[in-house]
Design a protein around this nucleic acid. Structure first.
Lengths: 113, 113
DNA sequence: CGGAATCCCGGGTGATACTG
DNA sequence: CAGTATCACCCGGGATTCCG
């Protein structure tokens, strides 16, 4: 259970699954569309998602190489929840940032001596 | 956006919010019901959730001390997504574990020399 | 193009002990 | 009971370089 949540927990997993919502994407396309992810983390996260069977990895034996990533059926069952999470984050982003600012203002880290 | 997802991302956040689904809990109760969390991580995660305004922390000036944690309105708006995620994890737990085993069996870490 | 390998740092996390 | 403090470690994650 903890491991399963750990998988979902990765913000990168959420973003990647969100990107594959309704289309197949290549490695480079994911790299460009997933904001701020490094090549390393993209590779590692994709491997993990593949291992868990949430997406399928298709290698086209061409030159130059081409690798496609598509949500599996299992991955698709996660879509609704993931999309909901993403929308929640977008919707309440400002509110949360405000809360953080207010909290930080009223809870000084180093109580003034 | 990334920070917001990072917040949700924590498996502990998901589990804690799930526990507070329909009731107020004390620190010790959370410690007992959230499987495998250390006291330290429980404290830190609760602080973070409080900072973001997802839950409210109420200190009762009694002896012994008593601290109650309750979902805020904002936190409640996350409930549906979080609960859905939890149910998904429970439902597909076995399937994912099978996928992992199969993957590991067919993708040796050290290719036999 | 789509990785794998290596180096390296910061911080996330657990264990333990102490406190109001 | 509900934390805080401290130490120590592991690993998530970036930067860089090399490969098929």
């Amino acid at each position: 259970m903890l491991q399963i949540l750990g998988l979902i927990g990765s913000k990168w997993s959420i973003l990647i699954i969100g990107q594959l919502r309704d289309r197949t994407l290549r490695f480079g396309e994911l790299h460009r569309t997933v904001n701020g992810i490094s090549q390393r983390m993209l590779t590692l996260t994709l491997r993990q998602l593949e291992r868990d069977g949430l997406l399928t990895r298709t290698v086209h034996p061409s030159v130059p190489p081409r690798v496609d990533y598509t949500l599996s059926e299992l991955g698709a069952t996660l879509l609704d929840s993931v999309v909901a999470l993403g929308e929640w984050a977008t919707t309440h982003r400002q509110e949360i940032n405000d809360n953080r600012s207010r909290y930080d203002a009223t809870h000084p880290r180093q109580p003034p001596s």
